Amino acid sequence: MGLAVFTLALLFATTHSLVAQEFKAGDIEIVHPWSRATPEGAMVAAGYLTLKNHGNSPDRLVSATGEVAGMTQVHEMAVDANGIMTMKQLADGLEIPAGGEVALKPGSFHIMFMDLKQPVKQGQPFKGTLTFEKSGTVEVEYAVDAMGGGHDDHGG
Rank of each mutant, 00 (worst) to 15 (best):
T131S: 07
D80T: 02
L18W: 13
G150C: 15
F132N: 04
D153L: 07
K117W: 02
A13M: 14
F113K: 00
N82F: 03
L130A: 09
T15D: 08
S17I: 05
M77E: 13
V140G: 00
M87F: 01
H54D: 09
A37H: 04
A81I: 09
M85E: 05
A81P: 06
A46I: 05
I96G: 01
I111L: 08
G128V: 00
E40D: 04
D153I: 04
Q124Y: 12
T129I: 11
S17V: 08
D92N: 13
T131D: 08
V120R: 00
S17Y: 15
A46E: 14
I111Q: 07
K52W: 04
N56R: 01
H32C: 10
S63D: 04
N82A: 03
K127Y: 03
I28P: 01
Q124C: 06
G123V: 11
T129C: 12
A13R: 09
S63N: 12
K117H: 00
V120I: 12
P97C: 07
Q122P: 05
S17E: 15
V144K: 05
E29P: 02
P58W: 11
P106M: 04
S17M: 14
I30T: 00
M114V: 04
L94C: 08
L61W: 07
G148T: 06
K52G: 05
G128H: 01
H32Q: 03
H75C: 10
G128D: 01
S108F: 15
I84M: 15
F109L: 08
L104E: 15
Q124P: 05
P119C: 05
G148I: 03
A91R: 10
G148Q: 09
A25Q: 00
K105F: 12
T14A: 07
E29S: 12
G156P: 02
H16E: 15
G107M: 06
E67D: 14
G93R: 05
M85V: 14
L10W: 05
A20C: 12
V68W: 00
G136H: 07
L94P: 02
